[in-house]
Write a protein that binds this DNA or RNA. Structure first.
Length: 272
DNA sequence: CGCATTTCCTGGTAGC
DNA sequence: TGCTACCAGGAAATGC
């Protein structure tokens, strides 16, 4: 499911394609009116100035001061190929001969593709409350620790909330906790400076390594070029229920549910 | 405010 | 084969 590495992979592909391109029309196809596809028509005539990312959100500043905001949800795909089904948005660019139409396909309708008018993120509370960007200098141990202290919920849930750090979802959460031997049910506010620093580093390392492999494809995720993500072969915890822990002997990865989400960990080396 | 729970949605799959 | 039931989960809405 698209998390930071998958979204960053998409961003890197969109950047050379879309930067400087002018939108002729942006229109909803088989997608509901409402906040998930708000103000799309406002993009008409504006030029895409950059392709940026905040957490799992793609943000494309437009020349008129608006922003095109895209969230891939679970199954969202940005592609130059016309989707055969689940076609949600069409963006026609002023033609240059290089892939003049952008399509948004989203099987399960969890994605969003909208225009934030003049930087107003009303209807996007998550974007407003987003924690620091993990691959930036803002993601310091001191700041991370401060944010971890704000919640008594299990560390797994707090990382998933996007409030302590942006862009970490179910897969990389389980991977970073496995890497640091932190139990997913450990209370966020009980994590000390030393473990917070290790966790911060593990998050950076896991995300960076995954970006290098173009992310993780479990089922639906594809790059703009149609490739699958290779990090699936490097997973140590996520989806490995019943398989041996690669770090300790005589132990297998266990699956529990934390905050309504499946959670994978090694009961032997991840202590509470 | 924090936190828990529910909702959205569809394809894949288990079980009969 | 065909049917039903259930599962996956990011973010928002809802209810304390």
């Amino acid at each position: 499911m698209p998390e930071l590495p998958e979204v960053e992979t998409v961003r890197r592909e969109l950047e050379p394609w879309l930067t400087g391109r002018t939108i002729r029309t942006a229109r909803r196809e088989d997608a509901p009116k409402g906040p998930k596809y708000a103000h799309l028509e406002d993009a008409d005539g504006q030029t895409i100035e950059a392709v940026t990312r905040r957490g799992k959100w793609l943000i494309l500043p437009l020349s008129g001061g608006d922003e095109l905001v895209i969230h891939l949800g679970m199954t969202g795909i940005v592609t130059p190929e016309r989707p055969g089904s689940h076609h949600r948005v069409t963006v026609e660019l002023e033609p240059t001969g290089d892939r003049d139409t952008v399509y948004f396909q989203d099987t399960r309708r969890f994605g969003r593709f909208l225009v934030a008018v003049q930087g107003r993120y009303d209807g996007l509370p998550s974007l407003q409350q987003l924690g620091p960007e993990p691959l930036s200098d803002d993601f310091t141990t001191a700041e991370f620790l401060r944010r971890l202290k704000r919640s008594r919920t299990p560390i797994k849930q707090h990382l998933m909330s996007q409030k302590a750090v942006a862009g970490v979802g179910n897969i990389y959460c389980d991977e970073a906790l496995w890497a640091t031997r932190i139990h997913p049910l450990a209370r966020s506010n009980r994590i000390g400076r030393k473990r917070a620093d290790a966790l911060r580093q593990a998050i950076v390392d896991v995300l960076t390594a995954s970006i290098a492999r173009q992310g993780t494809t479990l089922r639906d995720y594809r790059t703009v070029g149609g490739d699958t993500g290779g990090y699936v072969d490097s997973l140590k915890a996520y989806g490995r229920t019943g398989q041996p822990c690669e770090r300790c002997d005589d132990s297998v990865i266990e699956r529990i549910v934390v905050g309504q989400r499946s959670t994978h960990f090694c009961p032997k080396c991840q202590r509470r």
